[in-house]
Design a protein around this nucleic acid. Structure first.
Lengths: 198, 198
DNA sequence: AGACACACGTGATAC
DNA sequence: TGTATCACGTGTGTC
């Protein structure tokens, strides 16, 4: 019962996003219609293959399409800057957003590693920083064995997929303010008398 | 001419990912085949609508499909933890990855703001702290450009993983080790004589 | 041996 | 007007 409602919501959201496109097919009613229209129990193997099999394929394909559309809507809900309400454009904006977040995270992480190096010379917590990293590595590679291949570890996907179509070679829009902020704060805390060093 | 090569690469990569699925259609040859088979220049409006219009729709739809597939491949190249080589699963992993990156960024940003507050209340540079950050933005973002490239020695490989165990069900925690690290380091730098709390 | 995933062509629709 | 996208059913291949 909730299946029908879910499919209704799918259609509704489609029309909300895409300005009442493809409303003609009522959609959920065709599930039952097909399963009662095609399934007239012809015991011959040929009839089974052409009628019931086809209806199952139809409903399976429809579920697959619905799932992919839900994923597209979920992407639209997560990514903040959606330019066009299109499938390809939505995924392109998501890729752009992921790239910007990755570059920002990389700069922050570089700052953290630099902080570790500067922390070795002054503080005593530098020793268990390395231990923490080692333990994280060990636990990560151990839990990987529990489930299936789970392609991760370093560059798991980039080795499989080197460079697709050189698509989206655009800007990464320079979100440096966070990096500069933490940088300045750490410098100010580390050397409170001299403002900036190196 | 480069169009055919591009579509060839598209098909090849599809088969590389999905274990030689849907190879039977040679694909690019049908472009020319359709445009020479349907386009027999029947000057009647009905014939134009049924033949040439259909071929244009076919090639347009094919381009649209190709573009969306390229976006899917680009998502696979950007997102590190791809669990299944499926379209919907790919987008789901991308959403999961985006959520983990967002939560991590939020914690780091909260940490920065908290650091600013603690710097105001305790240190003597608290008065001109904001101005110091503003000035550090200009003087520091030039000098730190050289050190950006040594960030991927060991920090770029496994901390970028959202969570090594069970990425699927929305548990985006375990990002706290980074926060704990920066927190401990800042505390150690701020109070070098007192032992570490937290 | 059936479930699953995909590409394809086609009709419909919005700008 | 044409040009874009979309959902749909169907055939086909893989596991």
């Amino acid at each position: 019962m909730e299946n029908i409602d879910d499919e209704y919501r799918n259609y509704w959201e489609t029309n909300m996003f895409l300005q009442t496109e493809e409303l003609d097919r009522i959609g959920p009613f065709f599930d039952e219609a097909i399963s009662t229209y095609y399934d007239y129990d012809s015991s011959s193997p040929d009839g089974m293959q052409s009628s019931s099999m086809a209806s199952k394929n139809i409903v399976t394909e429809r579920n697959r399409r619905k799932k992919l559309n839900e994923m597209i809507y979920a992407v639209r809900s997560v990514v903040p800057n959606i330019t066009k309400m299109d499938k390809a454009s939505t995924i392109r904006d998501a890729i752009e957003y992921i790239k910007s977040l990755q570059s920002e995270e990389m700069t922050i992480k570089a700052e953290i590693s630099e902080l570790e190096i500067s922390g070795i010379s002054s503080s005593n917590i530098s020793a268990n920083f390395d231990i923490d990293i080692q333990e994280a590595t060990i636990s990560c590679s151990k839990t990987k064995r529990t489930r299936m291949d789970h392609c991760h570890d370093y560059a798991g996907s980039r080795l499989v997929m080197p460079s697709p179509i050189e698509v989206l070679e655009g800007d990464v829009e320079e979100k440096d303010d966070l990096r500069v902020k933490i940088e300045a704060a750490i410098a100010a805390l580390n050397y409170p008398d001299s403002p900036i060093s190196t």
